[in-house]
Nucleic acid binder design. Structure first.
Ligand SMILES: [Mn+2]
Ligand SMILES: [Mn+2]
Ligand SMILES: [Zn+2]
Ligand SMILES: [Zn+2]
Lengths: 154, 154
DNA sequence: GGCCTTGTTGCAACCCGTGGCAATAAAGTA
DNA sequence: TACTTTATTGCCACGGGTTGCAACAAGGCC
């Protein structure tokens, strides 16, 4: 009634129009993604798919995530430890700030990133992918508490 | 003659003064690091240690790298894929820029990072660890050639 | 519906680390 | 040197993710 094409139908058509295929495994992941929001790791997505279809295979999920990323449906970044984190339907593109001492994380929104993005664009012609940015360091509390960056105890 | 304490002796004494120990495995890694420069992955360091001592175990190498990082002797960052990369005696602290299309990488030196570092410090009180920064996006050539960020094909 | 092309899946093996645990061995002390 | 403490090692099993490959199946076509 409201919209004649469900999210699944839209994706199915976008895949088909590119010669790609609509499979049960992809449908499962889409269902999971529709129920998710914010940040999720790849491993979590695999688990959630398994909750729907226990036969889910990690490689299939990761390969499908690659496809969905090409389509702009998800974006991945990396936590401070380098592990993947997926942004699912973020309200707006953003990066992350991570405190190495307390483990806190904060989002870097587009406004805050403007300076950075513009300076790389102007000085280098480099287009920053903000969603892939994770800046590690010490938050205000931790740095004023005298905590150290890993490696600054020289 | 020139300096009475070799690099190994210096490290040995720093470890002992902290109640830590000077072991053959650590000596092997030190030898490898002294022969290295620039960027090396953890896996490469393991291989190079094995070239000296085939009995080298990965966990020992990684644990020793943690210790050396605490001492400020190495610093790690992450490549665009999240894998560890160690900075061995960098001439100066720096971050990295990585083009998602051509795979090119460039260093972000302290001068170039000043704007970023200062803006996080002033707006957030956050102290950025520049050596841990990897910014991914599109370089000038790739972005003007119309290449796409992964995920911008929506 | 049946046929074909070829994109996709599942499997297995692999890579990069990490962490618990019991055995080993630095190194300070007597 | 012998003894003692405890940091470190090696081993093993695991977590997260990637990849080659043969079998499978989506879906366009008749
Ligand atoms: Mn890290
Ligand atoms: Mn990445
Ligand atoms: Zn903190
Ligand atoms: Zn490029």
């Amino acid at each position: 009634m409201m919209s004649s094409a469900s999210s699944a139908e839209q994706l199915r058509d976008r895949l088909r129009s590119r010669g790609l295929r609509w499979t049960p495994q992809r449908r499962t992941l889409l269902v999971v993604l529709e129920a998710a929001q914010g940040h999720v790791t790849g491993a979590e997505l695999v688990e959630r798919c398994r909750a729907i279809d226990p036969a889910t295979t990690p490689s299939t999920v990761y390969r499908t995530l690659d496809v969905l990323e090409d389509l702009g449906i998800v974006q991945h970044g990396h936590g401070a430890d380098g592990r993947e984190e997926f942004h699912v339907r973020p309200e707006q593109e953003h990066g992350h700030l991570h405190c190495a001492a307390c483990g806190g994380t904060w989002e870097i929104d587009e406004r805050e990133a403007t300076t950075i993005v513009n300076s790389f664009r102007e000085e280098r012609g480099f287009e920053v992918d903000l969603s892939h940015v994770t800046v590690v360091g010490l938050c205000r509390e931790c740095s004023s508490a005298g905590n150290q960056q890993p490696g600054s105890s020289a």
